[in-house]
């Protein structure tokens, strides 16, 4: 490992941050094009650096592809002036990340991410956003607030995390698929059909959740239940039913005095 690598990565982060800052929507003259170029350059260089130093592994191409997709998508989430597109880019990020998780052999986590984020939370966002108007004409939508501080904070945090993982090998564990395939075509000479030798990480994760982390899980469940009850208590505010003072004119017909025929 090159000792200067972390600093190179930090520098790339800075370049990316500058790109994002420039690409953020703003009133006045748009600087999206130089920002995008800067951001893409940072991503490209980052991939190049990682490709140079990472260990070769199966599916590395996919890994780079999805990483780039996730990065660019994340950039667009914050820089796109239309809220609905932001949501869609967010979905793209989620899918890319879950693909990365699949490559890492964490299928359960990948699908959970999709089901929970893309399938539920972001649909809710889209649901809300649909009620807003289509064109991005509202000043609040087309101008970002405190772009510099936001970018600074975001990329500082990211650099901190990257600094922690910077020394970890970027190799993927073999996925359960690979294991099965190896079992099928390798030296295995069973005459019967292949055993499902590997339980996959779903079972492992289930086991971990139900043994090691059972208290955490249950606590979370209780918290969610409390939140649910609280939400219902807030939502279920009884609207008093008005009684019509005039029995001949029930409330449903106030303002409609015409005879039915």
């Amino acid at each position: 490992m090159n000792a200067s690598l972390p600093y190179l990565i930090y520098a790339l982060f800075a370049v990316g941050g500058a790109g994002i800052y420039l690409a953020l929507p703003r009133s006045g003259r748009s600087t999206a094009v130089p920002g995008s170029i800067l951001g893409l350059a940072a991503v490209g260089m980052f991939v190049a650096v990682v490709a140079k130093y990472a260990l070769p592994s199966e599916g590395a191409g996919f890994s780079y592809l999805f990483s780039a997709m996730a990065l660019i998508g994340a950039g667009r989430v914050v820089t796109h002036p239309k809220a609905v597109y932001c949501v869609l880019y967010f979905v793209l990020v989620i899918i890319s990340v879950s693909m990365l998780l699949v490559l890492q052999g964490a299928e359960f986590l990948a699908i959970a991410l999709i089901v929970v984020y893309a399938g539920a939370i972001l649909v809710t966002y889209a649901f809300v956003l649909m009620l807003s108007q289509q064109s991005a004409s509202v000043p609040g939508d087309v101008r970002s607030r405190e772009p510099f501080l936001a970018v600074l904070a975001g990329f500082f945090t990211m650099a901190c995390i990257a600094g922690q993982v910077g020394d970890l090998p970027l190799a993927a564990a073999p996925s359960s698929e690979q294991v099965i395939r190896l079992a099928q075509h390798g030296e295995a000479d069973q005459a019967v059909m292949p055993e499902m030798m590997v339980d996959g990480n779903t079972a492992a994760m289930g086991a971990a959740l139900m043994t090691k982390y059972v208290v955490t899980l249950e606590t979370t469940g209780v918290l969610l239940l409390v939140a649910l009850v609280g939400a219902m208590a807030v939502a279920k505010k009884r609207v008093p039913i008005e009684e019509s003072p005039d029995p001949e004119k029930p409330l449903g017909q106030v303002g409609r005095e015409a005879a039915p025929f």
């Binding site: 299928e107 889209a126 996959g200």
Partner: peptide, 22 residues
Amino acid sequence: NPDIGLLYVLGVGSLGVYGVVL
């Protein structure tokens, strides 16, 4: 035949709404 076959179904199904909504 991924080992999360059923979850895959759920995940794909949950994305089905996007086409309609968009």
